[in-house]
Amino acid sequence: MSALELGDPPRVAAPRPQPRRRRIFGGAGRQAGLTPYLLLLPTGLVLAAIIGYPLVQLVIMSLEKSGTSSQFTGTPFVGFAEYGKVFGDSVFWSSVERTIIFAGANVILSILFGLGIALLLNRVSRTVKLIMTVVFMFVWSVPTTVSTELFRWLFDAQYGVVDYVLSQLGMTSYAQHDWFADPNQGLQVSSFIVIWGAIPFLAVTLSAGLAQIPKELLEAARVDGASAWQAFRSVVYPFLKPLLIIVTTLSVIWDTGVFNQIYILRQTHPEPGYYTLGIYSYVKAFATIYGSDNFSYGAAMAIIMVLLMAVFMIGYIRQLLRIGSES
């Protein structure tokens, strides 16, 4: 497999000795050599047309000055002027900061909860495990649009159940409390939605990973007198590490791209205090009501976003290919 070149050399299994067996489809012969390319052609054309071409356009857009007024003025080439504007924009930098804190907190909390619940899932009785799994499946399947509207209702200032419960628990200042007046608190509600939605996938996946650990090893650790933490540190963690890296990277990708849980929570009109990179570029490029319809600016920001994400994605692909080549 070509994947071999990408993995870390020491951990990669040797290529399987198969070359002598006749390839069924990809044998010698000219025609067979063309078949895979013909099979790939439709997908290739589709991806080139609806992803490749738009990405090139995105780069061009970011180098031009365009907006709703561009139909009258044309789109003059301005080079990196839009990037300069982006980097000189204090709202951009505060959005970057907010995105990092928001995504970072969500990733850490959801992985911690996910891992904790995964460990718990493997300790509870079969009935409790079934109950938990069924609940998780329902939570997992809820679309983010729906979960956001649902949490908006739970945290409603007038009739919301959260305010009611908190005030009954003695925190009377929370009666009729408006969670969204302060953007930082509003973003905490967003975090609740994100983490609530992420826990099922993380817990179920990690629990499946935990079940793969040979029982004898854990037994041996216990016999040797290892504490629960020591057993986790030197038996469970090394086994789980590849899977943990994958789900953490996925969480980074998802949580950096969180959109609905903020945009819809603020009823499609997020205040500047709620701007993450994604929200800000969306608002900049499309929301004419803000009087800032500016594709070029949004495009430049989107490209910066893609480049930032690329770092994580390369790591993710490497990890996936490495696991793929080992199994």
Binding site: T43, L47, I50, I51, Y53, P54, L55, Q57, L58, M61, I253, G257, F259, G278, S281, Y282, A285, F295, G298, A299, A302, I303, M305, V306, M309, M313, Y316, I317, L320
Partner: peptide, 16 residues
């Protein structure tokens, strides 16, 4: 195939 999955939809949306 793997890489294009990771392009943020927002980035594609402008030019699309």
């Amino acid at each position: 195939v793997m890489g294009v999955q990771m392009v943020p939809l927002i980035a594609l949306l402008f030019p699309l």
